[in-house]
Amino acid sequence: MSIDDTDRAIIEATQAGLPLVPAPYAALAEQLGLDEATVMTRFEAMKDSGVIRRIAAAPNHYKLGMTANGMSVWDVEDEHLTALGTKIGALPYVTHCYERPRALPAWPYNLFAMIHGSSSDEVEEKRAEITAILGDALRAKDILYSTRILKKTGLRLRKRG
């Protein structure tokens, strides 16, 4: 869907966050010269169309004691990828799971699954379970632990004009 100028103004006003006040939609409406009902209707429409996935909090895994955050990567035979990717994505400890292109020869991996845990032992245990599920279709694997968050701001629209 395409967004119009009103949607755009709402996105620009909230991309850093929603106002932390009891009536945030009314606060936004006042700031933007709209009324509260319009702001809520626009949010609802953007949610329905998928432009907004949800209005929610993004926690910092490290601060919640999840200090082991691994991007596990797997080289899975192409003909088995969709079936196996669906299985891996359904595991309770996998938070994101995607097929991505290989970058041969250095990067043979086509399946990415994020695993979070409170220790690397815990993450390795989960990784062993994934290894078992992938079975004979697995050709190579690796895991890339994050050592530092360098930026986490989410989407930013370019300024117009």
């Binding site: 996105i11 991309q15 850093a16 966050g17 996935r53 209005i55 929610a56 909090a57 910092n60 701001t153």
Partner: peptide
């Protein structure tokens, strides 16, 4: 509740609170 959310934001436990946008859905 709002005071607690502000504190969680200030301490970095929450990196953000607001809409999550899908760039692909916007074209």
């Amino acid at each position: 509740l709002l005071e607690r959310i502000k504190t969680l934001r200030e301490n970095g436990v929450l990196t953000r609170f607001g809409p999550f946008f899908d760039a692909a859905a916007m074209g």
